[in-house]
């Protein structure tokens, strides 16, 4: 049986970590980052590798906000809803993104390019309202700025 690209990626990740239970979260984090979600198969293989029961891997995967059992977009937009961003109407960004990308929070766009979610405080409060796309932070956002940024990513 030939291995798919996803399987190979998973193999590479699993090999990097020590097969101990406390590697669980770190492995899941890398799988989430590289494969954009935790599939049933991935969860099983991670659990096996770090020697924990599948139920523990599942409970960890569903407890932490960082993990998702459904695919996320290639570009993950994290809109900050910390206190400062809340006071600067960060919620408005969520609404704007919904109409801009024609999808709901947590549901990837049809082309799989984007998904957006709310996070609690990116720690850039003086730039409120702020958001992060795949680790890159954007601040002092307005509807116009948001449109421009999305356009840039679409063109990438």
């Amino acid at each position: 049986m030939t291995k798919t690209g996803t399987d190979k990626k998973l193999d590479t990740i699993l090999k990097k970590y020590e097969p101990r239970p406390d590697s669980l979260i770190a492995v899941l984090q890398e799988v989430q980052e590289k494969l954009h979600y935790l599939s049933e198969d991935a969860l099983k293989r991670v659990a096996e590798r770090v020697k924990v029961p599948l139920v523990q891997a599942y409970s960890v995967a569903t407890f932490y906000n960082a993990f998702s059992l459904k695919p996320k977009g290639k570009y993950i937009i994290q809109v900050c809803l910390g206190t400062a961003c809340h006071l600067q109407n960060g919620n408005q960004l969520i609404e704007e993104l919904g109409s801009l990308l024609d999808t709901e929070m947590g549901v990837p766009t049809k082309d799989g390019l984007f998904s957006f979610e709310a996070v609690r405080c990116l720690g850039c409060c003086s730039l409120a309202p702020a958001m992060m796309i795949n680790g890159k932070t954007y601040g002092n956002l307005t509807a116009d700025k948001l449109k421009k940024i999305i356009k840039e990513y679409k063109a990438k």
């Binding site: 406390d22 590697s23 979260i25 984090q29 924990v52 906000n65 993990f67």
Partner: peptide, 25 residues
Amino acid sequence: INRGGGAFVCGESTALMASIEGNVG
């Protein structure tokens, strides 16, 4: 270094330790 998983409760000391051990926080 252990990276958190986006759970506020993990700032609580015992939850944080549970998380380092690879458990639910």
